[in-house]
Simulated scan of single mutants.
Amino acid sequence: MQHIKVFTLAALILAASLQHTALKPHKSARHPYPQTGFWTTESNPGEQSTTVRYYANSNYLVSETVEPSRLDISRLSVRKYLNGRLKAELEKDTTLKSATKLYEIN
């Protein structure tokens, strides 16, 4: 009888911990996502440069730059660098406030 109480208590604690972790929003430092907009990268074979395009949330191309070296977007530091550049490009964009968002199109 004592074993049943222990197993029941363990099951309740496990269920409570699973619900607690499911309620927290998952924001991993290993996968930083920008708050607004997004960026894409393009590297051609045989070239040492990377083309980076910055977009607003409405798929509007804000700017396009060429980085002189190949960017490895699997590295956390590179993704943070691109997110910072995206934020700076979006702040410089004057048409962002007047651009029609996709969800506003009827």
Rank of each mutant, 00 (worst) to 15 (best):
M1G: 15
M1D: 08
H3K: 07
H3C: 05
H3S: 05
K5E: 13
V6N: 12
L9V: 14
L12P: 12
I13C: 15
I13P: 14
A15K: 07
H20S: 09
H20W: 15
K24S: 08
K24T: 08
P25K: 10
K27P: 05
K27M: 05
S28D: 05
R30C: 08
H31M: 06
H31E: 11
P32C: 02
P32D: 06
P32W: 10
Y33R: 14
Y33F: 07
P34F: 03
P34E: 00
G37M: 04
G37W: 04
G37N: 02
F38H: 09
F38T: 04
W39S: 04
T41M: 05
T41Q: 01
E42I: 00
E42C: 01
S43H: 06
N44G: 02
P45W: 05
G46R: 09
G46P: 08
Q48K: 01
Q48H: 01
Q48E: 01
R53D: 03
Y54F: 15
Y55S: 01
A56Y: 00
N57Q: 10
Y60M: 08
L61Q: 04
S63N: 07
T65Y: 01
P68H: 07
D72G: 05
I73W: 10
R79K: 12
L82R: 04
N83V: 03
G84I: 03
R85A: 13
R85H: 05
L86V: 07
K87A: 14
K87F: 12
E89S: 11
T94H: 11
T95M: 04
L96I: 14
L96K: 14
A99K: 13
L102I: 08
Y103K: 03
E104D: 11
E104G: 10
E104I: 06
I105N: 03
I105S: 08
N106V: 06
